[in-house]
Design a protein around this nucleic acid. Sequence first.
DNA 1: ATGGGGATCGTCT
DNA 2: GACGATCCCCATC
Length: 185
Amino acid sequence: MSKSDSLQFLEKSAVTVAKELIGWRLYVKQTDNTLVGGTIIETEAYTQVDAASHSYRGETKRTSTMFGPPGHIYVYFTYGMHYCMNIVTGKTGSGQAVLLRSLQLDKGVAIARQRRGFVADNQLTNGPAKICQALSVNMHDNGSLINDSRFILKPPIVPVSSVATTRIGITKDRHRLWRFVAADS
DNA sequence: ATGGGGATCGTCT
DNA sequence: GACGATCCCCATC
């Protein structure tokens, strides 16, 4: 699959992408040109009809990336101290994104351990803010285009099946089964 | 093993 | 002026 095929995949709706993104691999280039990242094993979909989504009340300065073209990275800052990253999906202007919630690291484990304060290896990237801390992603990366920036996204080597559940850490629209987890995790 | 609360600030009401 | 698409520590069971 080529670079343009990856971008074409991201034109699908957020719910479809969130489900099918399980098993894809995300890597982020570091300042020394090495890679940190691994396999995506947990995602959540957010859309404009969804009261839990940042895009629910329309475009603002903060959410403008979410309303831009698919394939870009939407980073937001929350709880006064954490960053979380999404991949924008769907038609341009539709306000959809997929939140990355958990990765299985396979590159850059040593630097990730250092950045995460030497927690247990299974806790390095098992949360949206942990991913950003381990991969060194912050607001400067907001708006970056996948495969044309620090961010590299590759399709699965073998397809990975996923299970749909309710989302985490939200108070509105909790009923939607828009969280997807790798079946074997 | 599980649960409550503190840290900390940009964004929107 | 309130509240998070969170994480971590500490208390308690």
